[in-house]
Design a protein around this nucleic acid. Structure first.
Lengths: 118, 118
DNA sequence: TCATTGCATAACTATATGCTATTACAGCAG
DNA sequence: CTGCTGTAATAGCATATAGTTATGCAATGA
C-alpha cells in the first residue's frame, strides 16, 4: 500500500468502488445483464438478442467476467455466460428507484416554475 | 417515447441507469460524497479535504448536483453543498460487499492454484 | 488433414471525460 | 467605484474506452 494521502480514508477502496460502478455504467453491458437474467446464453445468442457486434460483445463479456458478475463456461465450440452474482440486480433496482425519485422531484419543480411564470 | 427497438425492453431506461452509475464511477466524486457524509461544506473546505483543484471540484459538484445527489446552497460569497439523497450510500455499501466477496473468491482461487503448482 | 464454426484478440478511429490553466462573474470591503 | 475573494465557465491537452474491421485460434466434422 503506497498510502498516497494520509488525510484520505482508503483512497484505494474508493477506487475499487468506482471501478465496480464503471462496469455497470454502460448501456451495452446492462443490456447483456438483462438478457442473461433469465438463463445462460452463448455469444451468438447474445449477439442476436442485443444487436451488438460479436467482437464488441466479447469485450464487454470479458469486463463483466473480470468484475465477478458473469461466469464463463465453454461448451463444445461455443461459450456460455451466466450471472454469477445476482446481487447486481439489486443495484439496478436501487438505481431505478433513485431515477424515479429524481424525475418526480424535477416534475414538481417544473410545475412550480410554470406557476411562477404565469 | 420513440421506442427505438421493439425487441429491447426500454433501451432508454437502461441508458438512464447507466448514466446514474457513471456519476458514481469516479474516485473523486466518491471522495466528495464521503466528506459530505458528515456535514455540508463549501467549495474551499472541500478543496482542502479532498486535495482536488478548485475548477475540477466545481465540475464534479455540478455533475453530482445535476444527478440529484447533492444540493447547493449559496451563503454570502460561498456555496455550500450537502447530500440531498442519502440513498447513494446504500449503493456504496452494497458495492463494498460485492468487492469484498470477489476478493474472497479470488483469494480462494489463488490458494488452489498455488497448491496445484507445488 | 483440412475446412468450418464460434469466440477471442489486435489495431484503429471516434468520442467522452478528467485535469489544468485561464477567464469571467458575483458578493463584499475599503 | 475599485479591488478582493470565492465560485463558475471555458478551452486545451491527455487519456480511456466503445465500436468496427481484420486476424488468430480452438473445437468440430467431412
Amino acid at each position: 500500500m503506497p498510502a498516497k494521502k494520509r488525510t484520505q480514508p482508503d483512497l484505494d477502496t474508493l477506487a475499487s468502488v468506482a471501478d465496480y460502478f464503471k462496469v455497470l455504467s454502460e448501456t451495452s453491458r446492462l443490456q447483456i445483464l438483462h438478457h442473461l437474467r433469465g438463463s445462460p446464453m452463448n455469444v451468438m445468442e447474445l449477439c442476436e438478442a442485443t444487436g451488438l457486434g460479436q467482437a464488441n460483445l466479447s469485450k464487454h463479456l470479458k469486463v463483466l467476467t473480470q468484475a465477478g458478475i458473469l461466469s464463463r463456461q465453454p461448451k463444445g465450440t461455443s461459450a456460455y455466460y451466466e450471472i454469477s452474482d445476482p446481487a447486481v440486480f439489486e443495484f439496478c433496482d436501487l438505481a431505478c428507484d433513485r431515477i424515479h425519485d429524481r424525475i418526480v422531484k424535477q416534475t414538481k419543480t417544473l410545475k412550480q416554475l410554470k406557476q411562477l411564470q404565469q
